[in-house]
Amino acid sequence: MQDKKRARQVSGKTQRFWKKHRKLEKFAYLLPSITIFCVFMVWPIVYNMYLSTMEWNMVSPVKKFVGFDNYKNVFSDPGFLKALGNTGLYVLLMMLFCFVAPYFYSYVMGKLITRGAKVYRALMFFPSLLSLAVAAIVFMWLFNSVSGPVAEIFELFGHESPHWFTSSGYVIVALSIATGWRSFGYNLIVFLGAIVEVPIELIEAAKLEKASNWKIFWRIVFPLTSPTALYVFIITFVMGLQYVFTPIQMITKGGPNMASTNLVYLIYQYSFQFFQTGRAAAVAIISLVIFLLVLLLQNRLNKRVHYEN
């Protein structure tokens, strides 16, 4: 009893303290998150910009200011142009596997079937629980050109399997499949969340007018789910940029002959293998600018879709 009373007194005291310092209390709740964000999210961007104008090998105590030389050097580096092109390919394939495909499947599962949707959804999400490192190692064996299952399938049809990880072109496809397989489920679930909200009455009405499923998708489902589509589009873009890093690092290390490298992997190599930190920072800033441009463009397109409907 006595204890309780004392406890109440103490809590009364702390309460009075907070009452006096209202602002301080708000600050105390936000402070942990804001500190982490400032130190490990905001500051790095600023510091990265600074580094991109320096010549530095990451260990030497002296950094030399070189202005925009790093950017100039990067743009005249054939390796960078290769990585840029590859990044485009990765993003394109990831859009196919993790934006178009889940959009289609979520429409089918959410509106076109009556049975089993919950089972499909639970199982198709499953690969998203795996580490990208696990996905990479499993697909390395699946695509093994001598006796992996994919090679066996090629053999069934009387073809020789391509050497997935050692021939340019194929390597990007194989790595994207591994990454896409593991990330598909997450986007599927996000899309499903939006699609189940589309009122069934609208679709029924359209069906009575004998509209095709294709038409219903474009005229009803797509306009009503476009905010979610925008969100998934952005995260898929980020995936195409950075998720593929793990399979690249684990399986090909950017090879053969830079055929599978991308911007993020190039940043890693510049900084942690060649110790050209300034260049790495410049590539990082370029990738950020590209990302922001895509964001802006997509935003504009999305707005137009809204106005048209």
Binding site: S33, F37, V39, F40, M41, V42, W43, P44, I45, Y47, N48, L51, M58, I234, I235, V238, L241, Q242, L263, V264, I267, Y268, S271, T277, A280, A281, A284, I285, S287, L288, F291, L295
Partner: peptide, 20 residues
């Protein structure tokens, strides 16, 4: 501001965070 930080590509913060 919090929401925007969800979309900051890891590649941009990788080197500075390593140095920090």
């Amino acid at each position: 501001l919090f929401t925007v930080s969800m979309f900051i590509p890891f590649s941009v913060i990788m080197i500075p965070n390593y140095l920090t």
